[in-house]
Simulated assay, not measured.
Amino acid sequence: MMLRTLVFTLALLLPQMAVATCNGTDLRTRLTADQTADLDALMRDMPYPDGNHWIAHKGDQTIHLIGTIHVADPRLPAVADALAPVIATADALLVEATAIEEEQLKDAMATRPELISLASGPTLIDLMPAEDWAELAQAASQRGIPPFMAAKLQPWYLSLILGMPPCVMTAMQNGGEGLDKALLRVASENGTPATALEPFDTLFTLMGQDPLEEQVALLRLGTFGVQQLEDLTATLVAQYFAQEHGAIMPLNRVVTRSWLDLPKSEFDVLFDDMLDKLLVRRNANWLPKITASQGVTVVAVGAGHLGGTHGLLNLLAGDGYMLTRQPF
C-alpha cells in the first residue's frame, strides 16, 4: 500500500489528473506528538521547502519555476490568471507533458497493452493468496474496475488505481482542468512554444522496471480505506495551496508508515526507492534541458519536484543560479 499512496501522492502533482471534492480532512490537524517530531526531523534543514513560484537568474538567462497541482480546484483559475502574463511573455514553456505526449500515450496504451497489462503468463489471481486477491478485487470494484480486468493489470498500475479514492476516479472520468492545462492553453493562445521535459512513457518505464514478484509483494501489503485515501487527498491539496510542497512527501511518509504493519527500516527503504525513481532521477534528467534554455523560460511541473536536496530549486542553486521567491 505504501506504493499506492506514494504513487497517488505523486500523481496529484503530475499531469492528466482531475479530482472532485472528496470528503477528506487535513491530516496535519491529527498528527500525534511522535509523528510531529518525526516530521520536524525530516523537514529540518530542508532546502527550499516552500513557495510555488520562484525565479532563477544566471547571466542573461531567466527561469521561472512554477509548482503545479494537476487537480480541478475552484482556486486555480485565479492562479492561472495571475501567471498568464509570465507565460505570455516567455520564450518557452517546459512542462512534463504537452498535448503531443498525451496523444502518444493514448496511442501507446491502445497498441501496446504490455505498458499496463500482464500480456502473458499468470494473472494476479494466480500470483497471490486468495484472501489477498479478494481484498484487492473488492477495492477495484469500488472504483468501477471489474476484478477480471484488474487481475490482468501490472501490479504497479493496479497500485496506482487503488491508491485513488473512488471520488477521484469519478472526477477523472468527468474531466476537469488542473493548473498545467490552463498554463498550456495560455501558451497556445499567445504563441509561446511548449515542450515536454521527458518522453511520454518515462513513468511507465520507471514504474515497470522492478521484477514482477517485487511488484506483487508490494501490492499484497493491503488496501487502505476510502476515508484514509480521501484524507490523504485533502491533506495534499491543502499543503499545495499553503505552498508547503517540501512537506508533502515527509508527511506522507510519517502518516502511511503508521498505517502499515511493517518495520520502519523496511518501510523507509521502499519509500526512498520510490522517491529516487519518481523525483530524484527525473529531476536530474530534466536539469540539462532546463539550463540549456535561452532567454526567459517557464518551467511548470508538479510542486513535489521543487523542494529538497534533490529538488529543482536546489539543483539550480548548485549550478550557480540566484533564486528569488515570487508571489503566488
Rank of each mutant, 00 (worst) to 15 (best):
R4S: 15
F328H: 11
E198Q: 02
Q138P: 00
G144T: 03
G246D: 07
F8R: 02
A242Q: 08
M46G: 00
T235H: 07
K289P: 01
E177Y: 08
A242I: 00
D132K: 03
L315K: 13
Q16S: 07
L232S: 03
D91K: 04
P113F: 12
P49H: 05
L162Q: 15
D126I: 10
P146W: 04
S120R: 08
D91Y: 13
D91V: 05
G191N: 08
F271C: 05
D73I: 03
T5G: 02
L127A: 08
E213M: 05
S159D: 05
E177W: 02
F241H: 02
V79K: 05
S293M: 12
L203G: 04
T233A: 12
A171S: 04
L14N: 10
D45V: 14
G302A: 09
G208T: 04
L203P: 02
G67I: 02
G320P: 00
Q227A: 13
I290M: 10
V95M: 12
Q173H: 03
V86K: 11
G225Q: 10
D73Y: 00
L236V: 09
V7R: 00
D81L: 15
D60C: 05
R220D: 02
T111G: 15
Q61W: 11
T89E: 15
T233Q: 05
D272V: 09
L162V: 14
S265W: 12
E102I: 10
A284E: 07
D180I: 14
L115Y: 13
R112Q: 15
P47N: 07
S188K: 12
D81S: 06
H64V: 10
H245F: 06
